[in-house]
Design a protein around this nucleic acid. Structure first.
Lengths: 231, 231
DNA sequence: CGGAACTTTGACACGTCTCAAATGCCGTGG
DNA sequence: CCACGGCATTTGAGACGTGTCAAAGTTCCG
């Protein structure tokens, strides 16, 4: 189970672990558990106790907070190479978000004591972890500024660009993720109907094309201009 | 300058440094610089390079991102015991926010190499730093959810409660900070006029009282109910 | 094939923003 | 000490964006 191939895999897929020594990688591998999750499954739920963190090797996870009337607010996605749940582990608090599988996922579980030990034994690892949280914090602050100051149309344009950047495109140029209109609305922070209407506008103006849930960006420049309100 | 009293001071005012050894504290003290900033002064500006981080010993700092048409979006305050600028230092990037003095401030400056060395030499310090960023990250995510889902009235109620909790009250019960209506609007993420109107509503309903810039919360319970939209 | 979930469309109401103008407040300089 | 100018606050009117509700159409999946 802890063969050479898999060891290489962990540190190559997850940049966070690239500073680990061979011994540390060995220990990590000996304690890692791999699980497959189906679409719709909950990996951990807001308010529940977390005993380790989750490294996504395959699939797509949406991470959200539950808001008014149980309306979810998506705050992040996790895909191959991303690590989630570490925040609650490190601050020893219950999970502050829910992680739900959007596309069948293969996920490594790392018990929290391993994380703490790595922080103690390897300062480069600690630094990487700090830098990771700092990056996420900046992302969050940017999002706050946007959501507070931009119109729904601007935010939707921005979200579409973000989605393409995050999930890349398939062979036909469509963004490689299946999100419901409701999902999109709970990223943008708006009503589902508003998303639908504005997507319709974008389509009419040939900024995007739509095939069912799939969206293809045709005019990245125009969407950028809209999102930055420079048009 | 580096007398015993000041050494004790640093670690007692800033919880982040409580795990430092005597030698580390001594080194820290030998490199720290203390500055006084007047109201309106900029400590660092978004987009500029940062060479160290700032520990607030006195005064009030507002931290904001610049948005559309240069409209600022306040993302945090820093008061006695808070540390700011460390994010940009750690991620080796230009400042992603601007820090501006609201009330005359006394601020310790710590060169970035000290921070990096402490992370290397003291894993408890590294862990504290990680936990600090994690807490801030969670705060940011909560704010995203609120700003996306709540009405302006709900958000303003919440912000008033936050302000009282952060800055406490003076002897007359007024929140101990001077913010312009514009400042408040750029926390809430709305127009200045909306803030004024809704503050007027709150006053009319006796949830708050107003004397110039100063605000006193009269009915914390009602404001909580409004903010949680449970009324 | 059937039912549930998702998407789309329309009408309408309401919240919020913008613009404009009046008033109030405060520090500066005469 | 007062007058002035500039900035902050307040109020009003109107336009616009966005949310809500209801209903019909569509897709998905067992």
């Amino acid at each position: 189970m802890n063969n050479e191939k898999e060891e290489n895999n962990i540190s190559s897929v997850f940049p966070l672990f690239k500073s680990l020594t061979e011994q540390e990688l060995e220990l990590l591998n000996s304690r890692i558990k791999c699980n497959i999750y189906r679409k719709g499954e909950i990996i951990y739920r807001e308010g529940s106790k977390i005993t380790g963190c989750y490294c996504v090797n395959k699939g797509i996870i949406k991470i959200y907070k539950t808001g008014i009337d149980f309306k979810p607010q998506i705050v992040a996605f996790a895909i191959k190479g991303d690590i989630t749940g570490y925040r609650s582990v490190l601050s020893n608090e219950v999970a502050c978000t829910t992680a739900e599988v959007l596309e069948e996922a293969e996920i490594y579980y790392i018990p929290s004591d391993i994380i703490f030990n790595l922080i103690k034994s390897n300062s480069d690892f600690a630094l990487s972890l700090i830098q990771l949280t700092c990056r996420e914090l900046d992302q969050a602050n940017i999002f706050i500024k946007d959501i507070a100051q931009k119109t729904v149309k601007q935010r939707l344009a921005e979200v579409l660009l973000m989605l393409e950047k995050t999930f890349k495109t398939d062979s036909d140029g469509f963004i490689a993720v299946n999100l419901t209109r409701e999902d999109i609305s709970s990223i943008v922070g708006t009503a589902t109907e508003s998303v639908i209407r504005i997507l319709g506008d974008f389509k009419k103006e040939n900024f995007i094309s739509i095939k069912g849930k799939k969206i293809k960006i045709l005019d990245k420049k125009k969407l950028s201009l809209i999102s930055d309100s420079l048009f």
